[in-house]
């Protein structure tokens, strides 16, 4: 059965991208802590130390765990995408149901040589299934492989 096969992990650089994104998300908290610190409502480090420690933990640990929770599987005739820590989702899209394919690169992804592959289906649920954190070449190869499966006349 499909589900027992090993998942292919994403490119290791995906962790770095996730870390940058997470760091940006924690930035407002650090700034607030800094302001409170400067105003010195309590003893020195009362705000900065716990907030920075928590931010460090979040930035170092969570992206790694998310990375390990993600993976994909290119089958003969289907693509399987697994993701999510708390809310896990495990999606299978047969190539025969793919309407069109996107390969996107954000500025951050480009800096690390990564790309996001998106396959679109005609279904109302899972109208688009995204797979981030692929090496750019891998994403291109996957696109070509899926496209080879889609019949000419449906394009």
């Amino acid at each position: 059965m499909v589900d027992d096969e090993e998942l292919t992990p994403l490119h290791p650089n995906h962790v770095k991208v996730l870390r940058v994104v997470t760091a940006l998300a924690t930035l407002p908290f650090v700034i607030v802590a800094l302001v409170l610190e400067v105003r010195a409502f309590l003893f020195p480090g009362a705000f900065m130390v716990p907030v920075v420690l928590a931010a460090l933990y979040v930035v170092l640990r969570i992206p790694l765990r998310r990375y390990h929770a993600r993976g994909y599987q290119m089958g003969e005739d289907r693509l399987r995408v697994v993701k999510g820590l708390l809310f896990r989702s495990d999606t299978v899209v047969p190539f025969g149901r793919v309407q069109h394919i996107d390969v996107d690169q954000g500025p951050l992804e480009r800096a690390y040589g990564l790309a996001t592959l998106t396959v679109h289906t005609a279904g109302t649920h899972n109208a688009s299934v995204t797979l981030p954190g692929l090496a750019n070449e891998t994403a291109m190869e996957m696109r070509e492989a899926i496209r080879a499966h889609i019949r000419r006349d449906t394009m």
Binding site: S89, D90, V92, V93, G123
Partner: peptide
């Protein structure tokens, strides 16, 4: 059908059930 997804929330993961979308 066009795709099949198995989705599990935090409770569902621990308790061994899932939603098939």
């Amino acid at each position: 059908l066009h795709s099949a997804e198995i989705s599990q929330g935090p409770l569902a993961q621990r308790r061994g059930y899932a939603t098939l979308l």
